[in-house]
Structures are given as C-alpha cells and as structure tokens.
C-alpha cells in the first residue's frame, strides 16, 4: 500500500546566520537542515488516499511551514486535495507528488481552517482552477488575518515561497457533499472550536475522517476558537461514524476513539484547571505556568503552546 517513498535528502549547508535569528525555535525537531519539504514521504493510508506527515515543529526558514498533515484523494473523476500545505513551496511540492501519481485533474482543494500551515499551499493549485472548499466563516477569518499571516511567512520564507491568500469558492455553512464518481466526501462545518472556521470531512470510499486540526495527536493542540466549543465538537466527531482518522498534526492515520480521548483529556484539564484558577483568584500570569502542567510529558511543543492556550481559555472562562 505504501507509495514510493521520497527519502530524506540533506542539503549541504550548515546552520546559517538566519538560524541564530530564530533562536528559540525547535530546530532540533527537523530531520535535516535542508529543505524539509523536499524530504518527506507520502503514505497511502487508504485506497487512493495519500498523506504526508507534517513536521512536529513550528514554521522555520528551512521547513517551508510544512508542519501539517497534507494529502489528496484520487477519485474516479478527479483529485481532491485534503490540505493544501503551509506555503506556496509546500503546496507546489504536494502538487508535484500528485502529478507523479495520476493524470486526473485536480478538481477540489479543501481549506480546513484559517491557520497559515493549512492554507498557504493553496496558491500552488490556482492554475488547476479547482473548487476551493471552506467553512462559511473562513472568508471573513482570512480577510482579517490572511495578510498578516502572509507578511509573517514572507519574513521567514521570502515572497516567492510564501504565496497568496486564497479564498474559498464554495462555502459550507452546515454540511455539504462532493461526488468524485466512485466516492463521496461529506463536509461538516463546525462551531467555534480549534478556530472559528473548522471544516471536517468523511470519505465514503474508506470511511476515514479528516478532522483537520479538530484532532491533534502527539503535538499539543493550539486553542484559537473556543475551549468549551471544542469539547462539544469532539462529541460531534464521535457521532460521524468513523473509526479511523487523519489528524491535522501527528501520525498520518490513527484510531479515532483513543486519539479523541487524549485530546479531550488535555482540553478538559485545561478547562478545569483554568476554571479552578479563576475561582481561586489565581491571576492569568500565574495560571499560565500552573494549569495543565501535569500534561507536559504527553505532548510535543507543550512549552510553546500551553501557556498561550491557558491565556485564551482564561479569557473565555472568566466571564462564565
């Protein structure tokens, strides 16, 4: 089932001056100091379903923001891109991998939510004139943040590798279905959870769920929508009938139930710990170091994101 793996290639350059500028980022997580996006393997996780595992790292000058699990589904009538990539460069890499495997047209690209590691690959697919599918709230979220994200990414990767902000051409307010001839993709627009624009998808051909960043595995979830909402949407994901899923970050495919249990474990500790801090008048600057500390060993990048998650949760919960 495994597609031809592309083995890691190391580009000769050692650590450069720009590495020093981004000190504090987790460069140790990178497999090479070369262009990481060119050193990934793609795995076939179901019939006609190909996924590349994103790096468990933040965007750096060397990794083209290739940190999300991106992929595509080859249907009878065309190809649907499940996640576009974290930059134009990452999207181009993905497109090249698609073209290597099929000559079917790329008819659909899913923009799963507003975050840069999930939308900036879209520019690589504009030439294919696909339907760009997004949550009904994605357009406004992108118009608020897209340009800012783009500037940040340009600072890191340069304009050529970053690409444009691409807006959805098909918006999903509740549910929607796409037919690829031999399989149907069913989309669900979720309430505020990881972000305010989370879109999940189920493939009828494999039964696989694509929850995007509604499901983080191993990598600490980042909260940018609503903590209570996310816990609600987890319950909804459980009712969609899938047993396996392709998470937004983490392994390319996992058993859904235990992965959701781990995620909701963290989010519940975050919620309860933050509520307890608020009730005891523990100020936000102290709460960020104490709440959910017991989850530290369970998640990669914990120190980068947990304090921020507490900050977001605190603001949501202090008005309860």
């Amino acid at each position: 089932m495994t597609a031809d793996a592309v083995h890691p290639r190391t580009f000769g350059a050692g650590p450069s001056r720009r590495h020093a500028l981004f000190a504090g980022l987790c460069l140790c997580c990178l497999p090479t100091l070369g262009r990481a996006a060119e050193s990934f393997a793609i795995e076939e996780v179901g019939p006609g379903i190909f996924v590349r595992k994103g790096l468990i790292a933040d965007a750096t000058v060397d990794n083209d923001d290739a940190i999300a699990n991106v992929g595509f589904i080859v249907g009878k009538t065309g190809v649907l891109v499940t996640e576009s990539g974290g930059s134009l460069a990452d999207g181009r890499w993905l497109r090249a991998e698609i073209v290597k495997r099929t000559d079917k047209p790329i008819t659909h690209v899913v923009l799963t939510h507003v975050h840069p590691d999930h939308v900036f690959g879209a520019g690589a697919f504009v030439q294919d004139k696909p339907v760009f599918i997004g949550h009904a709230k994605l357009t406004e979220a992108l118009s608020a943040r897209g340009e800012f994200y783009r500037k940040r990414l340009i600072d890191l990767l340069g304009e050529d590798r970053t690409g444009p902000v691409v807006y959805p051409t098909m918006s999903v307010a509740d549910t929607a279905e796409i037919d690829l001839g031999d399989r149907r993709l069913t989309f669900t627009a979720h309430g505020p959870a990881h972000t305010t624009s989370d879109l999940s998808m189920i493939d009828s051909g494999s039964g696989l769920l694509f929850p995007a960043d509604l499901l983080f595995v191993n990598r600490i979830p980042s909260l940018d929508g609503s903590l209570r909402g996310w816990l609600t949407e987890i319950e909804r994901l459980k009712t969609l009938g899938a047993t396996r899923a392709v998470p937004g970050h983490g392994p390319v495919a996992v058993d859904l139930a235990p992965a959701l249990a781990d995620l909701s474990g963290y989010l519940t500790v975050l919620r309860d710990g933050t509520r307890a801090a608020i009730a005891k008048d523990v100020p936000i600057e102290k709460a960020v170091t104490s709440v959910a500390a017991e989850q530290r060993d369970a998640w990669a990048l914990f120190d980068t994101y947990n304090g921020r998650n507490v900050t977001v949760a605190y603001q949501e919960l202090e008005w309860e």
Binding site: L21, F22, G24, L25, C26, D58, A59, T60, D65, I67, H115, P116, D117, R145, E147, F148, Y149, K151, R152, L153, D155, L156, H194, T195, S222, D224, T304, Y305, R308, V312
Partner: peptide, 14 residues
C-alpha cells in the same frame, strides 16, 4: 502594522 498571530506561527518572531 497589521495583525497578530494565533495558533501556529507563534514562534516566528522577527
């Protein structure tokens, strides 16, 4: 200027 970041991009500060 424009914008601040939420979610991934936290670390990319220059």
């Amino acid at each position: 200027a424009t914008g601040a970041v939420s979610g991934p991009l936290v670390g990319m500060a220059q």
